[in-house]
Design a protein around this nucleic acid. Structure first.
Length: 398
DNA sequence: TTAGGGTTAG
């Protein structure tokens, strides 16, 4: 007897949609972390068109007579927001309202997060205002997202006030709320305030996690407080928290930026022993640190070793090495590497050229600088920042 | 105990 395949239900579509959007989010995170030169990721972003896949799936559901619910719509709205497709996200929300699906805190939070990530805190505040007008109470996630948004745009006092106001609204800030503000303080050069907040965590009955430690570690090293950072690294292990790749990269970068290269290499060894595999970011940190310390040859050797470790240099690493060659007045080699990077699939970006030109200007190599400046404009890389004007002026006037 | 939201690295 033939068994009829049951009609898929809304849950199954939602599951599929969620996985599509999650994959997209993962790729976005990779790109935001500066892997923009990874051609494979760019290609998959452009070619796979997963957001469009999600939209197609939504159309398919409707076609089959399965009514999308709030979860379906939320997933697609998030997918659209991830790519700044605001107009379509807005249209979808209108469609939801038309279909009498009542909006909830989660979908509003998706919008708040999307605006905050773009640094559009005013728009995020407007969303919260609309929520309240509709009698949907902003929750811990809403305010935590806003704290993160304020921190991102440097409105750190506003972030603090918001966190402090949460108990009065009947909401208990969670570890992520604290982590967002700690990060905000650190990124805005207020490491003392960050440390004070970090110490408040257990007093509030909350538990540290690896992310909280990673954030605080970065803040301490950025402020040049290496000894304190190293002590914190020990403390986290005493708390049974296992350092991950991000912890080690933060630690290595902190040490390199404070000219403790030997110490950084000893932690490279430790992480490997602990079974945490260094990635391209790890090597980028070490190569940059070596160059900054004037150890150009060692940096180049490490760079040349990358393929044997199964790692492909990305645009940032190429930029570092090209800059280092220019610093050593090996301009012809820098030009060769520029060609090589293109062959390998990484396109030089504005920063690559800025680094080269700045190095050449420092050494009064005007005609060389001019060649690179011309090459930049040939490639359609326009210098429109204040930095760009300075570079142009430097080339023209020196 | 079927599904959607917030934190960290060059």
């Amino acid at each position: 007897m033939l068994r009829m395949r049951p009609q898929p239900c809304v849950f199954e579509f939602n599951k599929l949609l969620t996985s599509i959007v999650k994959m997209k989010k993962l790729q976005l995170a990779v790109i935001r972390r500066g892997f923009a030169a990874n051609k494979r990721v760019i290609d998959s972003l452009c070619k796979d068109r997963m957001v469009d896949d999600a939209l197609q799936l939504l159309a398919k559901m409707i076609d089959k007579g399965i009514a999308p619910d709030i979860v379906t719509y939320s997933s697609v709205v998030q997918g659209l927001c991830n790519f700044g497709r605001w107009k379509e996200a807005k249209d979808l929300i209108t469609e939801m309202v038309d279909h009498k699906i009542s909006l909830d805190a989660i979908i509003f939070n998706i919008l708040v997060d999307a605006f905050c990530k773009e640094g559009l805190v005013k728009e995020a505040e407007d969303v919260v205002e609309i929520m309240m007008q509709r009698n949907i109470s902003p929750d811990v996630v809403t305010y935590t997202t806003l704290v993160d948004g304020y921190s991102l745009v440097g409105q750190i006092d506003k972030a603090r006030k918001l966190l402090d106001s949460m108990p009065g609204k009947g909401l208990k800030p969670c570890i992520i709320s604290y982590c967002s503000l700690i990060n905000g303080y650190c990124k805005n050069g207020k490491v003392e305030e960050a440390w004070g907040l970090f110490l408040e965590v257990p007093r509030k009955g909350l538990h540290y996690n690896v992310v909280t430690y990673n954030t605080m570690l970065q803040g301490l090293f950025r402020a040049g407080r290496c000894a304190h950072g190293l002590k914190l690294f020990k403390d986290m292990q005493a708390q049974q928290l296992i350092p991950n790749l991000m912890t080690y990269n933060t630690l290595l970068n902190g040490l390199c930026m404070n000219k403790q290269i030997t110490e950084a290499f000893s932690f490279l060894h430790i992480m490997e022993v602990q079974g945490v595999n260094p990635n391209i970011v790890t090597y980028g940190i070490l190569i940059h640190g070596l160059c900054k310390d004037g150890k150009h040859e060692i940096a180049r050797n490490l760079f040349n070793d990358l393929p044997s470790k199964g790692l492909q240099p990305d645009v940032q690493i190429y930029t570092t090495i090209i800059g280092s060659l220019c610093q050593e007045e090996l301009v012809d080699e820098a030009k060769l590497l520029l060609l090589e990077m293109e062959k390998s699939g990484s396109s030089p970006n504005i920063i690559t050229y800025e680094v080269i030109i700045k190095e050449l200007l420092k050494r009064n190599k005007l005609s060389e600088a001019k060649t690179f400046l011309d090459e930049m404009s040939t490639r359609g890389l326009l210098l429109n920042s204040a930095e760009g004007i300075n570079i142009n002026l430097g080339v023209v006037t020196r």
